[in-house]
């Protein structure tokens, strides 16, 4: 028709991976997270000691930079002479496994429920949102106590407790996103095109909430790790002889006055991992959607 319409931009936009580095990329956070992930897989091969190895002669060795410490146990030893560095490395495995399953399962469940509530509305929405309200009003630890009493404590219970606690988080946010996406004109046009609900879900709704889910999941990593540590600390989570950072805290609380490092070192590991995941999540949120500064 008109000549003007032909001056099109050249080239497509660079892929997400190409756009990620650059804008204030959080190198430190990413290094920590990648390090934790790596240690979870190769831990057994790089850890200096067997994490369970007892050596009562070297019990309560302080970290290397404290007087009396040695390079043999860089972060010191606990009351049974076990190497704290090796135990922290061993603990990453549990943290990663718990975080992975808890996030995948709670994310999947919450997303599905949120999508149903948001898209179909009506009674489904009312029932689901009341459930979410009820869920949000139960203290997570109380729920954990009840579930731990019914189920046997252990890794599975930790995952179940986290899923039961966090699905509502995803459901609420996904529902909100779907409610706003549903009003986009392209969704109405898809119906006018003759697309069914399944196509509309998979083609028009799901891809547009991926960014939000990615950010939520990243931010959840830190929370899950703390949650697992709390449960294990209370004896409701991971049980000895399995090692997690929470178990280490629980074990070390008895001699906190004469060996501060035994409780401080896993505490620092938890803190660094959480901080890294939160900073990374914040950055991801800003990159994926500069308009939304808070969730």
């Amino acid at each position: 028709m008109t000549a003007d319409a032909t001056d099109l931009p050249q080239g497509t936009r660079p892929s997400l991976l190409m756009r990620l580095p650059g804008r204030d990329f959080p190198w430190i956070s990413v290094t920590i997270l990648v390090g934790v992930l790596l240690l979870a897989f190769i831990g057994p091969w790089v850890s200096p000691w067997q994490p369970q190895a007892l050596d009562l002669r070297s019990a309560f060795n302080p970290p290397v930079w404290v007087e009396g410490g040695s390079w043999a146990h860089p972060l010191g030893t606990d009351n049974l002479g076990r190497d704290i560095l090796s135990r922290i490395i061993a603990g990453t495995r549990i943290s990663v496994i718990v975080a992975f399953w808890a996030i995948v399962l709670s994310g999947a469940l919450g997303t599905l429920i949120g999508m149903i509530a948001g898209y179909f509305g009506g009674w489904a929405d009312i029932v689901i949102m009341r459930l979410v309200d009820i869920q949000l009003s139960i203290p997570p630890l109380a729920l954990a106590l009840i579930l731990a009493a019914v189920l046997d404590p252990g890794l599975q219970t930790v995952v179940i407790v986290i899923v039961v606690t966090y699905w509502s988080w995803y459901a609420r946010i996904v529902r909100g996103e779907i409610l706003s996406l549903r009003e986009r004109e392209y969704v109405a046009l898809a119906r006018i095109a003759g697309c069914g609900p399944v196509t509309i879900f998979t083609r028009h709704l799901a891809p547009n909430i991926v960014n939000t889910l990615l950010v939520l999941a990243t931010l959840q990593v830190g929370q899950v790790i703390i949650f697992e540590a709390s449960l294990s600390f209370l004896g409701l989570g991971i049980q000895t002889p399995q090692i997690s950072w929470g178990v280490m805290l629980a074990d070390a609380r008895g001699y906190i006055t004469n060996a501060w490092w035994a409780i401080t070192m896993p505490g620092i590991a938890i803190m660094l991992t959480c901080l890294a995941s939160n900073l990374f999540g914040d950055w991801l949120r800003d990159v994926l959607d500069p308009r939304r500064k808070q969730l």
């Binding site: 986009r184 004109e185 392209y186 046009l189």
Partner: peptide
């Protein structure tokens, strides 16, 4: 529709 931004996915 009216809005050429919201009408294309």
């Amino acid at each position: 529709f009216q809005d050429p931004y919201s009408s294309l996915n």
